[in-house]
């Protein structure tokens, strides 16, 4: 992961100082709005937590439990991403309107899909999990869909924007040669927009791993459930091991992403 897209910056002093004032003002007002209650022996608890965290429980029995939880968490993340792709790709085609032939039909589909996607995306994964729990019960599908629906809606937006942001010239050439919207999509937009899709998918997989880790929020298994159990037992050393496992998972997905991008793209 090298860099953000940097735009040359031309300062406009007026708007900048307004923004600074707004940002600083907002933070100060929020600070004043919070009533700070006296910490109730929090310092001692924090110290105990920290000292135990750096002495993780590495007994073989517990490590096996951690490994099992980690596998389940990754499985939830991958299954969730598969749903996200199923939601995201058709969503991207609809929200970008690249397949519409008429101006009016395009406008209607674009506006309607945008509204639906924005709503699906606004709701946090775990709130989706709560809602799905009410309908599907405590079935793994609740967790998978809870990740897949909002992630799919985000993917639709990003992919849809990419489909529209491709360079004009190759598309004009295809249109001049008499290509239909479908052919334009297949031979023009998709190859141009999909160049670095692997990088994006892996980045979202990393997010999905973190989301899957906390599906214990509704009572599903994985690393989060183990953390909650360990916290309830006041076994902070086990919490340390579990956090370490989570860290390793995220770093591993990140490293795989780099490797995959290097292999697939060049």
């Amino acid at each position: 992961m090298t860099s953000a897209v940097l735009v040359p910056v031309r300062p406009r002093p007026g708007s900048r100082s307004l923004l600074t004032a707004l940002l600083v003002g907002a933070v100060v007002v929020s600070l004043l709005a919070v009533e700070v209650e006296g910490a109730s022996g929090g310092g001692a608890a924090a110290r105990e937590l920290l000292t135990s965290l750096v002495q993780p429980d590495l007994s073989p029995g517990f490590l096996a439990t951690v490994a099992e939880a980690a596998v389940l968490t990754v499985a939830y993340a991958v299954a969730g991403m598969s749903v996200a792709v199923v939601v995201g790709v058709p969503g991207a085609l609809l929200v970008s309107g690249v397949l519409a032939r008429r101006r009016t039909s395009r406008a209607v589909t674009v506006v309607a899909t945008r509204g639906v996607l924005a709503t699906l995306r606004a709701v946090h994964e775990l709130v989706w999990a709560l809602l799905l729990l009410t309908v599907l019960g405590l079935h793994p599908l609740s967790g998978v869909l809870a990740i897949g629906i909002p992630y799919g809606a985000t993917m639709a937006r990003v992919l849809g924007d990419r489909l529209l942001d491709v360079p004009r010239a190759p598309l004009d050439a295809l249109t001049a040669a008499g290509a239909s919207p479908e052919q334009l999509l297949l031979y023009g937009r998709l190859p141009l927009a999909g160049a670095d899709l692997a990088g994006y998918l892996f980045y979202r997989l990393e997010c999905a791993v973190r989301a899957a880790a906390v599906l214990s929020f509704i009572g599903l298994g994985g690393i989060g459930l183990r953390i909650e159990v360990a916290l309830a037992d006041l076994r902070f050393d086990q919490v340390g091991t579990l956090l370490l496992a989570l860290l390793l998972l995220v770093v591993a997905v990140d490293a795989t992403a780099r490797a995959a991008r290097a292999r697939l793209v060049v």
């Binding site: 529209l164 670095d196 991008r261």
Partner: peptide
């Protein structure tokens, strides 16, 4: 016309030149 989420792209990294 589109409002590309440049943050998402920043996460994904730049397209390879």
């Amino acid at each position: 016309m589109s409002t590309t989420t440049s943050l998402e792209q920043a996460h994904a990294g730049p397209a390879p030149a």
